[in-house]
Simulated scan of single mutants.
Amino acid sequence: MTRVVELSATGSVQNLSFVSRDPGRPGPGEIRLRQFGAGVNFIDIYQRKGIYPLPMPAVLGVEGAGVVEAVGEGVIHLSVGDRVGYAGIVGGYAETRLLPAWRATKLPDDFSDALAASGLLRACTAHMLLHKVHEVTPGTTVLIHAGAGGLASIVIPWAKRLGAHIIATASTEAKAERALAHGAEKVIIGRDAAIATEVREWTDGRGVDFTIDGIGEPTFRASLEATAKFGTFASVGQAGGELTSLSAKDFGPRTSLAFYTPSVMAYLADAARYEAVVKEAIQALRAGPQTPQGPHFPLSDASAAQSSLENGTTTGTPLLVI
Rank of each mutant, 00 (worst) to 15 (best):
E6S: 13
A65F: 07
T219N: 06
R21Y: 08
M1I: 08
T317F: 03
A87N: 08
T137W: 11
R286E: 06
E135D: 13
P298V: 11
G24A: 03
G66E: 04
S235G: 12
V40E: 10
E177G: 13
G316T: 01
M1K: 07
A269S: 15
L130G: 01
E30N: 08
D110V: 03
Q35N: 05
G163D: 13
P53G: 07
R48Q: 12
A239M: 13
L180M: 15
G81W: 07
R200F: 01
D270F: 05
V321T: 14
A248R: 13
L99M: 11
G88S: 05
G74Q: 04
K229D: 10
P218F: 01
S303P: 11
T219I: 01
S17R: 13
L268V: 00
G147W: 02
I51Q: 13
E242V: 12
N311L: 14
R3D: 13
G147Q: 03
V71Q: 06
I51S: 11
V68E: 05
T197G: 04
F220D: 07
L129Y: 02
Y260P: 02
V264G: 01
A104G: 07
A164S: 12
F220Q: 02
F111Y: 11
A58E: 09
E217L: 00
V142A: 06
D250L: 04
E217A: 08
